[in-house]
Amino acid sequence: MRRFLALLAFLPIALAAATARAETLIAAMSSHRVQITSNYTGSQLTVFGLVERDGRTVARGDPYDIIITVRGPRRMLLVRQKERVGPIWINRTQRRFPDSPVFLHVASSRPISAMMSEEAAQRDRIGLANAERTAGNWIDLDPGSARFRDSLVRIMQSKDLYGYDERGVTFLSNALFSAPVDIPATAPTGSYTVDILLYAGGVPLARQQTSFEVIKTGIEQRLASGAYDWSLLYGLMTVLMALFLGWGASVVFRRD
């Protein structure tokens, strides 16, 4: 449904493309599924894309710019601030960031600041700080909000869950480009969306959306679903295993 709505939103662009002969974007992922197995330590996908133009496309003086935004599953994120109360430091204030992506990576073919003005970036929701501007608390209602939002981005960046690579998109030819997407092992399971935007001279020309999912497979998936679907059995099995190992050790090491 969501995807369908997203498609509807791009319909005008697509129609415009048909009449005014603007460029069209074609994009593909190297894989649409990241499988978590017992030796999983993260993964890397590649986004490939092509800027398609035909004879009637207007000639442009500015080079093509590509911005790719990858968003992971959404959760409520909490940012807390420690403050001094008497002699001790405790979490005093907190802000909620409802429905925020746990994974957010932005890659561009050159620094966004060189492509467009800060106002344009905010308007088009380009860049790490702007990507979620429609969501609550991501907009600067007051100076306090901005501090919490910046801390959220900074801390998530230090965990590799958020990131901005200002030269992450490479043009292989005039029209063909690729960008690696690093999925750290701590990235949550769920579906991820990939938004690809084409700009030239600070003007958006075309956009394309694709997606992939991160899922557990094999024994990992069976254990995880077992823990939820047969929780009592799972708990009893864990305890029995624990007691058995404990008993085993006392037998193996018995000397007296």
Binding site: S38, L223, A227, Y228, S231, L232, Y234, G235, L236, M237, T238, V239, M241, A242, L245, G246, G248, A249, F253
Partner: peptide, 27 residues
Amino acid sequence: TVLHAVTNQSVDIVLATLLLLGGVIGA
């Protein structure tokens, strides 16, 4: 352990096994 498994599904059996292997020998 059983209570945690039933109420919040947060017992990791793989981690528990690893911790036990080291723990029982150390003990």
